[in-house]
Simulated scan of single mutants.
Amino acid sequence: MLTLLFADRIENWPAYEPALKAVLSEAGIAAQILLPPVDPASVDYIIYSPLGPVQDFTAYTNTKAVMNLWAGVERVVGNATLTQPLCRMVDEGLERGMIEWVTGHVLRAHLDIDFFLTHQDGLWHHQGHVPPLARDRSVVILGIGALGGACATTLAGLGFNVTGWSRTQKALPGVTCLSGPEGLRDALSKAEILITVLPNTRETTDLLNAETLALMPKGAVILNPGRGNLIDDDALLAALDAGQIAHATLDVFRVEPLPPEHPYWAHPKVTVTPHIAAETRPASAARVIAENIRRFEAGEEPLHLVERGRGY
C-alpha cells in the first residue's frame, strides 16, 4: 500500500479527503493518505502546497514525487532540499476557471460595460460607444501554454482577432502565434486587450514596464491572471494616469493578499480580484494526482513534470 502525505493547509483537508479517496479507489490505487506529522521515510508521494507544513524535503528519502496543488511552482522550484520530481497542477478545473475569468473580463472591456455601469444618468450615451465586432478587436495573450492556449482558442472561437506570444514558437488553430523578442514587440503593438498568462521566471519579471507599455496602442486594456511579477507596478500606474493604458484588471500581485495601502485599491482605472482566476478545485485536482501516481507506479511519463532549469 502506498503512503501519501497531504501537505497542504489543514483547513483544506475536509474538501480534499473525499475527492482523493474516491478517485484513488476508482483508479484501483491502494493508498493511505496521512496528515503531518509522519515518518518521512514512509512517504511515497507528497500532495503539496507552498502554504503547507512541509518546507524541508531532505528527510523524504523514499518519496517518488511531489505533486504541487498550484499551477505556479515559483515558491518551491528553487528549494534546494527538493530533489524529488516535482509536478505542477494543470487540470480541467484550473483551465475552465481561467477561461471563464479571461473571457468574462475580455467581453467586459470589449463591450465597454464599465462605461454604462457608471453612466446610469438618464442620458442616451450612444455616440462613440458602439463596440466593434469581435473580429475587429485585437486581443493578445502573452503565454500560450496549457492555460493561455485554452484561453486563446476560446477567444478565437468567439471571433476575436487573437495573437499569442510565447518564448518558443507554437501553433494554435485560429490564433496568430509569435515568439522571440521581435515577436513580443509585434504582439504588444497590436494589443488592444492584453492578457498575461506567463510563469514567474527571471525572464518574465517586469516584462510589462515603461518601455513595453509604451509599445501598446493608446487606451489599451490589460488583464493579468498570470503572475504579479510580470508587471512593473510603478510603470503601470504611470501609464494609467497618462491614459496610455485605459484600465487594468489584476488578479495576481507581488505581495498577496494585496496590502490595504497599495495604490491599486483606490485607483479608478484598476480592478482588483483576489487571485481567483485559476483556483485549484479538489475534485478535478484529485483526478490529476491519481493519474500521476498511476503513471509513476507504471514507469510512464508523468503529467506536467517541472523542468527545474526553466522554472516551470
Rank of each mutant, 00 (worst) to 15 (best):
H110P: 00
V102I: 07
I141H: 14
P36D: 03
I144D: 02
V140C: 08
G78E: 11
A15G: 04
M98C: 02
F115T: 07
L35Q: 12
G122M: 10
V73D: 10
T58C: 07
P18C: 05
L94V: 07
E100A: 03
L94N: 01
D44W: 03
Q32S: 12
L94F: 02
R9K: 15
V102M: 03
R135T: 10
P36C: 04
N79F: 04
G145F: 15
T63S: 13
I144G: 03
E11S: 14
H119E: 05
P53G: 07
Q127H: 02
G93C: 01
H119W: 08
R108T: 11
K64C: 08
V102R: 00
R9A: 15
Q127R: 07
E17F: 00
F57V: 09
C87A: 10
A65W: 05
I46T: 05
E26V: 05
G97Y: 04
G143C: 10
K21P: 02
W124S: 08
A15P: 01
R135C: 04
S138R: 15
G78V: 09
H129G: 00
A22Y: 01
W101G: 00
N12P: 02
M89V: 01
S42M: 06
L82T: 08
P14E: 14
E100I: 00
V38L: 05
T81P: 10
D91G: 11
P50H: 12
G145N: 14
R75F: 10
A59C: 04
D56Y: 06
E11R: 15
V77M: 05
A15N: 12
N62T: 14
I47D: 08
D136R: 07
M89L: 14
T103M: 10
Q55I: 02
E11F: 14
W13R: 06
G143M: 10
I33R: 06
N79T: 01
Q120R: 14
V73S: 04
N12W: 15
P131V: 01
K64N: 11
V66Q: 11
E74K: 12
W70F: 11
A27S: 13
L82Q: 04
N12Y: 13
L123V: 15
Q55V: 09
